[in-house]
Design a protein around this nucleic acid. Structure first.
Lengths: 183, 183
DNA sequence: CCAGTATACGGAGTCATTCTCCGTTTAGCA
DNA sequence: TGCTAAACGGAGAATGACTCCGTATACTGG
């Protein structure tokens, strides 16, 4: 890639992180272009769709999600507590920017989405956590990771769109966790 | 209200029902105006916001929700089965038009929304059903109707946005129901 | 029945946003 | 240093929300 192209690419991603933080993931792309001092054409050449740009922005998350999952797998606290912490981390992650939960959760399981691979990271991290407890027989075995991601994602979407606080989210997650335990 | 205004009002609502069915609840309002043979100005005078129009469109539902709730309260089938049927009806209702679940669920509990009163109908119907089982002591008492509506709504939003089939929805509802039972 | 007026109409027009097209510029190479 | 593929960027087309205001008309009181 040409040096100027690389520079613009990086500048766009950096600006996108800023703008998404300020205005949510549905922020006008042209504003990102303007603030990155590039033309709209340049932005769209690098990132044909909004999701392609989101994909580039997410890269930094991946590691943190993996770490949270590692913690959950390693922790010897009670199941309920471990799951609550893990799901909270999951929700916090995808909710960092307004509109994020909807973006991730509706792309989940859709292999044609530009952010599919990032969703897979989430799904697989969740799978590792669930596997640990499935192994112990403390959670039900008939629900797969994708489905759990969707339910948790649903909670995140509602919390995001209705502007709920963390307490409300935790309470809803508690219900879902109880639904996963036993059986 | 002047006779011509009434006629236009009715024509707009009828057309909106059609267009929402075809294109979802985010369909262009100008298209509704065009197809109803009125100017955009007329549509916006009658319904200042999209939600005001949705509110008018919903009127026909209310009775059906009440009926489904009545059935759930009266049924002597097992809890799990009754709840599954009720929640399925709830989800089906708000998911009738694409984009519906998000509209309803994010307005739920927000008394400033034009469709708040309709959301209250949903919430109260759900409350009646929950109350019956709370009385029997078969479901947990520490989760209120609003919260349950949000969790179920979250499932509906995800199913709607990801285009999931009914089996997937039912499976997710099953998890939530298990989370509500006991304790 | 008719005139006067409040009410309602409707579409042209503005604004915001997405996305494209294409003439211009430039990095990197031979 | 000159050539060319690569990249740029902004004008502008397309879509959709929403407003403004000149025009038309349904009602009412005489």
């Amino acid at each position: 890639m040409r040096a100027d192209a690389q520079k613009n690419h990086d500048k766009i991603v950096a600006t996108a992180i800023e703008v998404f933080t300020e205005k949510g993931m549905d922020a006008p792309l042209d504003e990102i272009a303007t603030r990155a001092d590039v033309g709209p054409g340049t932005l769209y050449r690098h990132f044909p769709t909004r999701e392609d740009l989101i994909d580039a922005v997410i890269k930094s998350w991946v590691l943190q999600i993996e770490t949270a999952a590692d913690d959950a797998v390693a922790s010897d606290a009670p199941v309920r507590e471990v799951l609550l912490r893990w799901f909270s981390a999951y929700v916090a992650r995808i909710s960092r920017n307004k509109g994020g939960p909807a973006k991730f959760t509706s792309a989940m399981g859709n292999s044609h989405s530009p952010i599919f691979s990032k969703c897979e990271v989430l799904r697989l991290a969740n799978e590792r956590v669930l596997d640990r407890f499935r192994h112990d027989g403390v959670i039900r075995a008939d629900v797969d990771s994708l489905e759990v991601c969707r339910i948790i994602g649903g909670v995140a979407v509602v919390a995001d769109q209705a502007g709920l606080d963390e307490a409300a989210t935790v309470s809803m997650l508690g219900v879902v966790i109880d639904g996963l335990l036993r059986t």
